[in-house]
Amino acid sequence: MAKFHLDIVTPVKRIDSGQVHMVVVPGTEGDFGVLAGHAPVLSTIRPGVIEVYREPGAEPQRIEVDGGLAEVNEAGLTILTGDLSLTD
């Protein structure tokens, strides 16, 4: 299964999450899933929860964000957000 690179960047620190299978992003216009090879997109995020699936079918890691920006390009997915708390 193809994977892609996820980067979560906050003003306080940068969390390099490495290679992941799928990420569900709470976009302002609705949630969207990002898989490897997703078309380039720049979307705002509403306050909510990002779900990170490291493996297909695995339990997602849930990350709360207070809004921000998600950018998908060839390099992978980059999320710019504020403070975040990790809930496993």
């Binding site: 003003p11 302002t28 997109v41 720049l42 979307s43 705002t44 921000g68």
Partner: peptide, 28 residues
């Protein structure tokens, strides 16, 4: 950014979201 990039909802909305954050980061 690649020319084919899609903006959701719109470039203006993205700037509106990002600019206050950017100011905050500058202050920080």
């Amino acid at each position: 950014l690649p020319a084919s990039i899609e903006f959701e909802p719109s470039p203006e909305a993205i700037l509106t979201e990002l600019l206050p954050r950017s100011v905050a980061v500058h202050v920080y």
